[in-house]
């Protein structure tokens, strides 16, 4: 168990370091100039801006300074596109929004996907199974950017309770969260169904049945835990999918989350913002994967001794 955690931690550190290093140099190698879009920038003013943000130095020196500022001052740098703002402030503002939205969507996804998968497996090769799996596939194929506008027109417009877009009322989370949850709900349904089918054909389930254990108890007590393993393994990647999915959903519903910052960061070549966001996403993914590892260890006694 310790070995699993430790190797995941080491992996996360290596991956995040590689990711940050790559992004740091990649952002600087991208064609364009972060200050080119600023109004009335003479070459002198541009040089002054570059000097102010330390971009006039060589890339290696910049890289060294970047880590030095993080380690000594906990400073991830200033935003180049939003002047006078620290990137850490921008992330601190937008992260709770993205997190609330993402977590709501993920929980919704689990609540929809897992029961759907279990039901499909119980009615294997019957009409209910086919219907559930076609619904699940629809969740994968009718993607957020088709679903979002459709929701806006068919749900938000007629129901005056819901705003079409924006993030000012508590109810504003409903539509983006539903839009965002479909993809992971669909994959979770497919994985749960697969896991369940696998488990239901095992001998110990047949034994339980032969002993006359009530069907519902067989499912909840004996089958569900091992059947959920593939779905739990997917929760780490699902988290990543929800993060990137939120780029689109935040864009459609005008949610002031981290997604907009990333898109703006790329188009405006805001180096510090891009690197800090990738840094943050990398750590988040590491945590998500670690949590999913821990859940698996908790669920499967065999893994505990490994």
């Amino acid at each position: 168990m310790l070995k699993t955690i430790l190797s995941r931690l080491i992996q996360t550190v290596v991956v995040v370091f590689a990711l940050v290093t790559f992004t740091f140099f990649a952002a600087r190698a991208m064609p364009g100039n972060p200050f080119a879009s600023d109004k009335a920038t003479t070459p002198e003013e541009q040089a002054a801006l570059e000097a102010y943000y330390g971009l006039d130095k060589g890339p290696i020196e910049q890289y060294y300074n970047y880590w030095k500022n993080i380690i000594l001052h906990g400073d991830f740098g200033d935003s180049l596109s939003m002047k006078g703002r620290k990137v850490s402030d921008l992330i601190a503002e937008s992260f709770p929004i993205s997190f609330t939205l993402g977590m709501t969507a993920l929980i919704l996804g689990v609540l929809i996907g897992v029961p759907l998968g279990v039901i499909a497996a119980l009615y294997h090769n019957k009409a209910i199974d086919y219907i559930a799996m076609v619904i699940a596939l629809a969740g994968i194929c009718i993607v957020a950017f088709v679903l979002g506008p459709l929701f806006q027109i068919f749900l938000a417009k007629p129901l005056s309770v819901l705003n079409v877009a924006g993030w000012s009322r508590p109810t504003d989370i409903i539509l983006p969260a539903i839009t965002l949850c479909f993809g992971s709900a669909a994959v979770l349904a497919r994985l749960t169904r697969g896991g369940m089918l696998d488990v239901l054909s095992q001998d110990y389930i047949r034994t339980a049945r032969a002993k006359g254990v009530p069907p519902l108890k067989i499912i909840t007590k004996h089958a569900l835990r091992p059947a959920l393993m593939p779905a739990v393994t997917y929760l780490g990647p699902a988290f990543a999918a929800i993060i990137t999915g939120s780029f689109v959903v935040e864009n459609i519903f005008l949610v002031p989350g981290m997604g907009q910052h990333f898109v703006i960061g790329i188009t405006a070549l805001d180096f510090n913002l891009i690197v800090a966001l990738v840094f943050f996403y990398g750590i988040l993914m590491g945590i998500a994967n670690l949590l999913s590892d821990l859940a698996l260890i908790f669920m499967d006694p065999k893994l505990r001794n490994a």
Partner: peptide, 19 residues
């Protein structure tokens, strides 16, 4: 491969494409 899989796919694709 495991390490690369632990990276956020779409974000890397965006960066690489620009690069």
């Amino acid at each position: 491969v495991d390490g690369l899989l632990a990276m956020p796919f779409l974000i890397i694709v965006i960066l690489l494409r620009e690069l």
